[in-house]
């Protein structure tokens, strides 16, 4: 509880003593928004950690080896991720559902195990230490989050967004309305790669260290990012950000759980998917699905978007 009491009673002190946590929330929010984009266009892609790795390593390596300005480094990293996104997307976006998920897991693991942990320039298992410009720290991260959320939100409102919605709901019907399904899926996939890469670059600069671990660029991270989106709800842009916020703060929310926090987290996740399939932020107000054994008449809830 102390955590939340301090947040309310002494916001400035809170800000100063929890810089790292706030930054991490911001970065997770950006990645979550990248996940939102692919889910919003009906693609179960788990490639985000791979693009984060591209963002992190490219920007830091440029910095270490060429001493180029940080803005340029980040820009190159983001563009590179877009190109890789195109090359990966061309063959895999034909796949649907879990097949796409598995293919993207193949991509991130091949990148993680085959390149990051295997090529000397990346520092292999040791990662990369760097003294790089921290990019302005928390303010930049939070501004980035707001900007990314804003841009994605606006994109979902226009012609592009309505095409994505149509594809998510029913690809076959979308085709009948003249929507070039493959092209719009690709646009979402690449945009999501750009955002993830940017988040990766931010993270690398935040920590002065590029950690090559599985929890950073491997399946563990992919699952975590998926959790943000599903828990928060992927029907609205803000959903995954809320999911990221909650997951990152779980240890503080369930302070009493102590070491058992992951058990609580797992149960929480199961409970949400069963009782609140549309996620925490979603249609239907606060309605929950009543399971069959519930002793009252059943109400149906909308399916997740």
């Amino acid at each position: 509880m102390d955590f939340f009491i301090q947040l309310l009673s002494d916001p400035i002190g809170f800000w100063n003593s929890h810089t790292l946590l706030i930054s991490q929330i911001g970065i997770n929010g950006v990645v979550a928004t990248s996940m939102f984009l692919v889910l919003y266009s009906g693609q179960l892609s788990l490639a985000a950690p791979g693009f984060m790795a591209i963002g992190a390593y490219t920007s830091v390596l440029m910095e270490l080896h060429w001493h180029t300005p940080v803005v340029l480094n980040v820009a190159v990293a983001v563009i590179l991720a877009g190109i890789v996104g195109l090359l990966v997307g061309l063959p895999v976006l034909r796949l649907r559902g879990v097949f796409l998920a598995i293919a993207t897991i193949g991509f991130i693991e091949a990148l993680h195990l085959g390149v990051i942990l295997n090529v000397p320039i990346t520092g292999e298992g040791l990662g990369l230490q760097h003294e790089a410009d921290p990019l302005g720290g928390v303010p930049i991260i939070l501004v980035s989050l707001v900007a990314v959320v804003f841009v994605v939100w606006r994109l979902t409102k226009g012609r592009l967004g309505s095409a994505w919605s149509a594809i998510r709901q029913d690809e076959i019907a979308a085709l009948s309305q003249g929507i070039h399904v493959a092209r719009y899926k690709m646009i979402a996939f690449i945009a999501s790669a750009l955002i993830a890469s940017y988040a990766g670059a931010l993270e690398a600069h935040l920590n002065f260290f590029v950690d090559p671990g599985d929890s950073q660029y491997g399946v563990t991270r992919a699952v975590q990012v998926l959790t943000f989106a599903v828990l928060g709800g992927s029907g609205f842009v803000i959903g995954p950000v809320v999911g990221a916020l909650i997951v990152t703060l779980l240890p503080y929310i369930f302070e009493g759980a102590g070491d058992y926090i992951n058990i609580i987290a797992g149960i929480f996740l199961i409970a949400v998917i069963i009782f609140r399939p549309q996620g925490i932020v979603g249609r239907g107000g606060l309605a929950i699905v009543r399971p069959a054994w519930w002793p009252r008449s059943r109400v149906s809830a909308p399916s997740p978007g």
């Binding site: 992951n262 996740l269 399916s303």
Partner: peptide
């Protein structure tokens, strides 16, 4: 309730989290 397959993906991840933890 004929949930999409992604839902089962998440619920089994949740259980895995519980067991490992």
């Amino acid at each position: 309730r004929q949930a999409p397959p992604i839902a089962a993906l998440i619920s089994t991840i949740g259980l895995a989290l519980v067991i490992v933890a």
